[in-house]
Amino acid sequence: MNFERLNAHFPWITLVVLFLLVGLANPAFFNPVGLLALAGDVVPLFIMALGMTFAIYIGGIDLSVQQVANLVTVVATVFLVKLGIGVALVCILAGALVGALSGLVTTKFYVPSFVSTLAMGFVVLSGAKWLSNQRALHMNAEAREASFGWMFDTTLGLPNELIIAVLLLALCWFLQTRTTFGRALKAVGAGELAAVASGINVDRIKIMAFALCGALAAISGLMFSVKLSGGDANLANGFLLLAIVAVLVGGTPLTGGVGGVLNTAVGTLIVMVIRAAMVFLEVDATHQQMIFGIVLIVAIALTIDRSKLKIVK
């Protein structure tokens, strides 16, 4: 079998191997109830990574997602009582708007997305701090239960938040593989100049990709806020790097055009298994982050597809 053909399958093989290794070391890991709980915990991260996939798929990056999620936790907490479940719409629109603005700055002013989204993140952070008065806010418990209590129920034995994640994944997968928008995304990521030459409105596609990324970051922030029952301008800090890691480990390279949302699902699960492994293998809390980093390097070194990288920058 051709080694290059095998390359695309490395992420899920890594996942299965890791999964089995952890389970063999401690069979308690295979307990379905525990696994469902683990998967539930990782849902906000997954949704953020799902959005990040689109930014990276077109060869860009979005560093503002963490701040968008922060802002949304504040917006959701402040306006929940007044707007009820309608607050979700406000949050998603706000996220899409921020993403679209980043895309606009990137395409119209020729600012690389690394910088434009970093800057947009700073602007959004200001908004979150202003709206929250720089305090940690608590959600009104009754309104939370009335509007979002259903998120913690189960349908057919599956937690609803997990179902939301699967539905969003299905939607994104449909967008990526079954629509002209998805095709255009791939074209932009694989070769922007060729995409321009073949008549694709690249600027519009990019802006839409960043808007989608922002909207998904907002959903992620909203779910996180409901889960923790509060909002704070720093609540989602720490999500950004993990979301990028989930996308990259899943096999969507920074150069774009390859990989996609299913890869990100696998990548998020790899991150989840590595983190859970530390608990199940009783790794000391102070050792965990270092081991996470080392496992990450090994996983990336084993799985990234280098066939399309002429120069490793």
Binding site: L241, I244, L248, M290, F292, G293, I297, I304, R306, V312
Partner: peptide, 15 residues
């Protein structure tokens, strides 16, 4: 290991 610096340094940051 031929890992792009973005990913390599990101992981090294965790380490």
């Amino acid at each position: 290991l031929k890992i792009p610096s973005f990913m390599a340094s990101l992981a090294m940051g965790f380490v």
